[in-house]
Design a protein around this nucleic acid. Structure first.
Lengths: 175, 175
DNA sequence: GTCTATATTGTGATAGAC
DNA sequence: GTCTATCACAATATAGAC
């Protein structure tokens, strides 16, 4: 059961799949209409018969990503579990994560409520405290970003950094 | 006393100033050699007499930014003060912050030791605990990124989120 | 659903004259 | 130090034929 307001046609699904594969294997920079068309063996203008433009195509991938991210966090009962799942998702889908976070969300093209649904597991694990939830989110996002951008020194013990913060946050949940 | 290995010529300084102004006023996307040249009233190829290419010019701005960021954090004695200074710097220089963080650092073009110098105040305020320092850094970076990217809901109390995390981290410093 | 042709705009970079 | 000329791409998008 897809989350999109209108189901995608078979051809649209082909295009989304090609775009997703391209994003995964070659990164955000490689996600161009030219490359997507090439992967499908067609010319770029043909894509406009199926999507309004690049933004619409990207929005489908972003929506998929938010959905998958929410799903990955759904079972988590504690901030520790949230953190582990958050990190696991981002490192397993680094390019998708970048697409989802590095630019303003195309909110006008996303299914209503999706953004909130993706945030819900974090709020729940934070015991309903929105400030603690936002702090946890920001920390996890910052860690993942810095790790993906290779900003930590070579020997850095990232597990320990995650532990340190999440332990500190968990203490706040119980408080 | 500039931090660059070789001092910049007067003309190079003109170019850097034009690039900095452009970055500040129009954003990372507007920072192109064409725009920089235009601002100086010259043609893009002329810039190559003064810099090896775009990467070199950007590296000067990034080095300046790291220097300024380090300076902004230098006086901070606690994680609370670090957090406040970090946020203040990023929100006062959002485009420079983006340039400094959104892409891999041009480490080969930065003065040696600069990256470490920029990180030192955080480590110091974390009582020398590198894990806590990295956690604090990641949190601050995540908060700033999410705030600059307009990812928080309209009513979100960001001061409270900062407070929540830093209070939790401060408790770890004393522990 | 796909094509060709085209518009428009951009982007970094080099060679060589002045 | 600046210029013209040029390269070599690349990007999104539209019009209209097939």
């Amino acid at each position: 059961m897809p989350a999109e307001r209108a189901a995608l046609s078979a051809r649209q699904q082909d295009i989304v799949r090609a775009a997703r594969d391209l994003l995964t294997s070659e990164g955000v920079e490689a996600l161009t209409l030219g490359r997507v068309a090439q992967a499908l063996g067609i010319k770029p203008p043909s894509l406009y018969k199926h999507f309004g433009g690049k933004r619409e195509l990207e929005a489908v991938l972003i929506a998929e990503g938010l959905e998958a991210h929410a799903e990955a966090l759904r079972g988590a009962r504690s901030l520790t579990e949230i953190a582990a799942a958050y990190r696991r998702f981002a490192l397993a889908n680094p390019q998708l994560y970048r697409l989802m976070t590095e630019r303003p969300l195309p909110r006008d093209l996303l299914p209503p409520g999706l953004e909130e649904r993706a945030a819900a597991p974090v709020i729940h694990a934070a015991g309903g405290d929105p400030d603690l939830a936002r702090a946890t989110w920001a920390f996890a996002h910052g860690m993942v970003q810095l790790e993906l951008a290779d900003r930590f020194p070579p020997g850095a013990d990232l597990d320990a950094a995650w532990d340190t913060a999440i332990t500190a946050f968990e203490a706040r949940v119980r408080a």
